[in-house]
Simulated assay, not measured.
Amino acid sequence: MAYFEPTGDHTFRATEHTGGAWDTGTQHIAPALGLLVHAVEADRDARREDGLVVSRLSYDILGTVPVAEVDVAVEVLRAGRTIELVQATLAHGGRAVVLLRAWLLQPRDTAPLQGSALEPVAGPDEHEPWDPTTVWPGGFIASVEVRRRPIAPGRASFWVRTPVPLVAGRDVSRTAATAGLLDIANGMTVRADPRAVAFPNVDLTAHLVAEPQGEWVGFDTSVTFGATGTGLTSSVLHDRTGPIGTSSQSLTVRPG
C-alpha cells in the first residue's frame, strides 16, 4: 500500500500510512508535501522537455486534513525559459490545506565549481537503529525506518527511509520521495516531551543544491524554542554523497 492512491487525474486518496503523529485521525503532512512535488514535476514534464530542477520548496501549512481524498492543483506563477515559479495547492472538501511555491531552474554543468562548507554526517550504517514509535503514534511514523545518533535534547543526526511508495502505480522521482520525508525532522530529536508540550510546524522551506540519490535521507538537525511561543527546527539534508541542501520549520510551541 502506498501513501496515496490516485482516484482521478488530480485527486488522491490518502491511506492509513499517512496517519498523523499529533492526531492519528488526521494526516501527517510529510507525505502530502511529497505529493505536491510529484504534481509539480508531472505538470512540468507535461509542458516542457528540458527537465528544470527543483531548487526551493516553500510550503505553508494552512490546517489539518483528514485521512481522506485530496485534490491537487498546479499553476505557473512565473513562466520562463530557464527559471519558473510554480504553485501547487493541496485541498480537501474545497478547503486549501497546503500551499507550495517551488522554484525550478535550468540544469547546467557546474561540476568543476562544486563545493560546500556544510559539514557531512556519518552514513546510515554508522547510526544506531531507533524506533520512533516509542515517542510518536500514527501510521506515517510506523511506516519509516530511522537510524539516529542523539547529541542533546533538540540536537541529533539521523537517517530516514521508507519502503512505502509515495503514489500507487506512478513513477515518482527521488526528489518527490525525499520531499515526502522532510517534515519528519521536527519529531526526531525532541527538545520537550510531546505529551507535555505541543510544537507543530506551520511551514517548511527546503533549498536543494543536488537532486537526492538513493533511498536514505540524512538530517543534521537542531531544534530551538524561543521565550514567546515560537520555535525553529533547522536541518542540513544529506544523501550518501554528502550535504544536498537545508530545510527549516517554524514551530508554534504550546505548553500543556
Rank of each mutant, 00 (worst) to 15 (best):
Q249A: 11
G242K: 13
D131K: 14
L104E: 13
T18F: 07
H92S: 06
L99C: 12
D171Y: 00
V190W: 14
E16W: 07
R108W: 15
T162I: 10
E145T: 14
Q106C: 09
A32C: 01
M1S: 15
Q87I: 01
I151W: 04
L118D: 11
R170T: 15
L113M: 05
W130M: 03
H207C: 10
G115A: 02
V146P: 01
P66K: 13
Q249L: 02
A206C: 11
V70S: 15
L204K: 08
T230P: 06
V217P: 00
S58C: 07
A96P: 13
V209Y: 05
P132C: 11
R48T: 12
P66G: 11
Q213K: 11
S222C: 09
Q27Y: 14
R148Y: 00
L104S: 07
A30H: 04
A73V: 10
P124K: 05
E145F: 01
L35V: 06
S234N: 12
V53C: 08
V217H: 03
R149Q: 08
A102V: 08
D171P: 02
G20H: 01
R101H: 06
P165L: 06
A196P: 06
M188E: 05
Q87N: 10
T18I: 08
A192F: 03
A91H: 08
D239W: 00
V236C: 04
M188R: 06
G20V: 12
Q213I: 11
H10S: 10
V164G: 09
I141A: 11
L99N: 15
R56H: 06
D60A: 04
S143Q: 08
H127W: 02
G187V: 00
D23L: 08
P150N: 07
P163V: 09
Q106R: 15
H238T: 03
G115E: 01
T15A: 12
P255C: 12
R191S: 08
V197M: 06
V223T: 09
A142N: 05
V72F: 14
E145P: 06
F140E: 12
L182E: 00
T15F: 10
P112K: 02
L237Q: 05
L100I: 12
P6S: 10
T110I: 14
F225R: 01
G139T: 06
R174W: 12
P243E: 03
R191Y: 00
D239I: 01
G93S: 07
L181D: 02
N186E: 11
V121K: 00
A196S: 14
L35N: 03
A39T: 01
E16L: 08
A96M: 04
T189E: 02
A111F: 11
Q213C: 09
S58V: 15
S250D: 12
V253Q: 12
D45R: 10
V70E: 15
V40R: 06
D239T: 05
T26E: 14
E126C: 13
D125E: 03
W103T: 02
T26Y: 15
A96N: 12
L204F: 00
A88G: 13
R161S: 06
T233I: 04
L166N: 11
D43L: 13
A68R: 14
R78Q: 13
G19H: 07
T64V: 12
V54I: 15
Q114E: 13
V54K: 00
R240C: 10
L90M: 12
T24Y: 05
